[in-house]
Design a protein around this nucleic acid. Sequence first.
DNA 1: TTCTAAGTGGTACTGAGTACCATACCGAAC
DNA 2: GTTCGGTATGGTACTCAGTACCACTTAGAA
Lengths: 206, 206
Amino acid sequence: MPARYAAAVPERPPLRQRKRQRAREQIVEAAYALFAERGFGDVTVADIAERAEVGRTTFFRYFGDKQEVAFSDEQRIVERLTELHRALPPVDDLAGALAQIREVVVLLCGELAADGEHYRAHERLVRENPELRDRAARKFHLLCEVFRDNMLARGAPREVAVLAPQLALACYRAGQELSDGDPAALTGAVDSAFAQVSESFRSEVT
Amino acid sequence: MPARYAAAVPERPPLRQRKRQRAREQIVEAAYALFAERGFGDVTVADIAERAEVGRTTFFRYFGDKQEVAFSDEQRIVERLTELHRALPPVDDLAGALAQIREVVVLLCGELAADGEHYRAHERLVRENPELRDRAARKFHLLCEVFRDNMLARGAPREVAVLAPQLALACYRAGQELSDGDPAALTGAVDSAFAQVSESFRSEVT
DNA sequence: TTCTAAGTGGTACTGAGTACCATACCGAAC
DNA sequence: GTTCGGTATGGTACTCAGTACCACTTAGAA
């Protein structure tokens, strides 16, 4: 293929970038393998670097710390959720806002369950390591802030923009716990948690 | 006072225990002072130990890690909440369960606000340090588990026992965020978050 | 007074995370 | 193809959190 056509082929990022991508994957793979073998606590960053065939220094260029490697595709997920949420029309009442986030979250649960093996490994890792549970919580709260800011930008009242994402998180966590780490059961459990919230209070007669 | 009356005076714990209590307080005080001066990240455990006039080793005998010292009275709070919650009659519907936790949490918010200065310092510390935010999240989730187990032990259905505490946590966090670290506003904000949840869905006409 | 268990502080270690440096290599421009 | 600039790499050396182990002190009971 003549060189002047090269620019017309978008499906070939420069070598630099491909190498970076490759190194990243190697590190993640190495880390997950070692974590599965020995548990998070008994694996050192040096171990991971060695198996991934990179220097210890390089590990920290790709991941801010040891925990971060266990959340390798969290950023992708956040971006996906943000995008989905932004696509929906603005609302300014609590029930409506929650219904919207419900849609988005349930959709994503399905996607997560698609890569069931990875989901299972990740969940197990997080469930068994307090430090990773903490970090997972941070990720979730970051996500809440994204939803909140998105809603605020669309003129939702502050109380709603703050509360709705937190409630959604509660439903997700409950669903996650109730599904016991089974990716196939996740979507259903989460959706039913959302349903419970809406229905419980609607039918309440005081 | 003759020795044989000593046992009849309950208001005097043995010296050992008093010393322990004292050392603990010294460490907490030293830590909070240093954190306020230089920020959590720029204070080493050695610094804290030195100012508290104990050995570095001793610090770790009182607190499992550096973060823990920032949550010095968390255990007391958990015990208090547990006790309050246990005193209430069993319920097995979501709305009822949430109303119960609401009572308990709102009550405690009042108590927290009472020691306003400490609350402010603690909140600020946590808000400004991601590592402490993570740890705070862990504490909250531990608390959720306490509520959950308490409800399960009283025969509540699992979905309710799991979901209700998570929703309550959502309300608390929302209230906390909306009150902007002001202890005086905390109780009101949290209570109104709970109210929103109940009312939003009750009045919903689909 | 004596004995035991609890508490203390010191030393020495591992491992996470950072700063810095010299080297290697991609990619573009000549 | 050669050269050149910026980027990625891996190594060394450091700080600090956290742990294990030690000898020493001291509260409190016998």
